[in-house]
Design a protein around this nucleic acid. Structure first.
Lengths: 191, 191
DNA sequence: AAATGTAACTAACAATTGTTAGTTTTGTAG
DNA sequence: CTACAAAACTAACAATTGTTAGTTACATTT
């Protein structure tokens, strides 16, 4: 009973994330979502409380995982390169787990309304921790002396948009992807 | 008369692109757009033919510029690294010119309806040309032997999302950005 | 001054939106 | 087999959507 409810609820959340990825939050109607789940729109409200809340839950769940993850990485007692590789690995793992949610996080965060401030806090915190890793690496001489913001932006953008790309490759093996992407991002492509 | 009409029309297009960037195409109403321009919604239709057409014009205009640009670069008689730098430069220049339009291109292309096929054609053509440059560089030994798709995805994603970033830096000087981003993307960040 | 064309306006439309109320079906526990 | 709760349904709501029709204000050309 509780099990059945949960799985129906989760089915709604997962379907919603998928639709949000395809058309964006605003373009997905509750009737679309209901049809995709195989019920009528009004029946959705036996399981969820509002469209808003679906979005908030999808996005904040992921955002919190990222923030917790980078907090742990920053505190680790290793060199900068290892930390950067761990950040890359975390992105690949979380994106593989939930590519549709990642799409919503990237594209629909501005529709969070009540939870928007909380989301922006998490994002700023994440970016600051990332920046602190980079600055550390530049001080220690592990990283080149390129513009910090350019470096930061360039890597972070690639990682944030993995969701566009990961589902296409039918298992390019997580491990291989982590290794190859680390090389590409950290060491470049020019021989 | 014709001049005045054009500038009002262009004001609408530019304002629309800005709003599309902030909230996405579906979340922007014709009343939002009208208010931002300072008139009533119905008056918009003295200048434009539909909401759809505003989006199509914004996106396809840019998409065609990119396609024409890369066609020219591919045909150039230079080495691969130079070609890649030219692709990077093109992205920076076009994004600086029209960051809001770039946002619409990236996030709202799926709402193109009638023009969707044409857009997808242009995009595929662009990606294929980009890939041909990369493959050429790997054959000639100018590029490392990393996975082609990873390399392609990683660079292209960074370039496509420059719009998120370029308006923030109050003139990080186009030239400097082109040079620094080329180094970061091609040679990596690890010392 | 008369005529013309552009661009604004008000009012309204049919369709669609998220959501609620009230009712019926369905599956399970006693 | 009965009772009950979970989850589906139908019907409807008030608000909002893109767009059209018809009208008015304004400037420029005759």
């Amino acid at each position: 009973m509780k099990l059945n409810t949960l799985s129906r609820k989760q089915e709604i959340y997962r379907t919603a994330a998928k639709l949000f990825k395809e058309k964006g939050y605003s373009a997905v109607t509750m009737r679309d979502l209901a049809a995709a789940v195989g019920i009528k729109a009004a029946s959705l409200y036996n399981h969820i409380t509002s469209k808003q809340q679906i979005l908030s839950e999808i996005i904040l769940d992921i955002a919190e995982q990222f923030t917790e993850g980078i907090d742990a990485i920053v505190d680790r007692d290793t060199d900068t390169i290892t930390k950067l590789k761990e950040v890359i690995a975390q992105h690949i793992i979380l994106t593989t787990d939930n590519p549709y949610g990642m799409a919503a996080l990237n594209n629909d965060w501005m529709h969070l309304e009540g939870k928007l401030d909380h989301y922006l806090d998490l994002r700023t915190r994440y970016e600051n921790k990332f920046r602190s890793i980079v600055l550390e690496g530049k001080e220690s001489g592990e990283l080149k002396d390129v513009n910090t913001e350019i470096l930061l932006y360039s890597i972070l953008t690639t990682l944030r948009n993995l969701y566009l790309w990961i589902p296409k490759k039918g298992e390019l093996q997580k491990d291989v992807l982590i290794k190859e992407l680390s090389v590409t991002l950290l060491q470049g492509v020019e021989k």
